[in-house]
């Protein structure tokens, strides 16, 4: 996967974390992971279709997820990862992917985003057919968020 395809996701993650998640973020070392990968306590998968095909997966600890949800919910106290908190974390993932896809669209790479799916539990593994994941580790004030990206060109 080319770096210029990754940069929009990175920029989107920083932007959405700051504006919606109310936290600064720092990027760790990028790496590759072969499919399947083991998830974290809370995992959200967002599909991408169009000129690019694949998945973007957001993984974090439950404590990070509830804190992120609270910040997205205007500071509402979030005690557990209930339905409202889940929709907040899902929407966060949707926003990052939608934002990145918008930026790709400005470069004539036209994609759409499919609804996020959230999986809770340590035993979750995620796979992407025939693809390896690019892993973006982010350190935030709420805890670590890892983004796994597996995208290929539709006509490639």
């Amino acid at each position: 996967m080319k770096a210029d395809l990754i940069n929009p996701f990175l920029a989107a993650a920083f932007d959405i974390l700051e504006r919606m998640g109310k936290t600064r973020a720092a990027r760790g070392q990028l790496s590759l992971a072969s499919s399947p990968v083991r998830g974290d306590e809370v995992n959200v998968a967002v599909g991408v279709t169009g000129d690019l095909l694949g998945q973007v997966i957001f993984c974090m600890a439950e404590r990070t997820a509830t804190q992120l949800a609270s910040n997205m919910l205007m500071g509402l106290p979030v005690i557990a990862l209930d339905e409202l908190a889940k929709s907040a974390v899902s929407e966060f993932s949707n926003m990052v992917t939608g934002n990145a896809v918008g930026e790709l669209g400005n470069r004539d790479i036209i994609c759409s985003v499919t609804p996020p799916a959230i999986f809770v539990g340590k035993e979750v593994t995620v796979s992407a057919k025939d693809l390896s994941f690019l892993v973006i580790p982010l350190q935030t004030e709420l805890g670590d968020v890892k983004i796994y990206i597996a995208l290929r060109e539709a006509n490639g």
Binding site: R19, M95, N99, G102, S112, V113, T114, P116
Partner: peptide
Amino acid sequence: EEKNHTLYIDK
């Protein structure tokens, strides 16, 4: 709706 997930409310 599924087809509208590329959109989101930004502010």
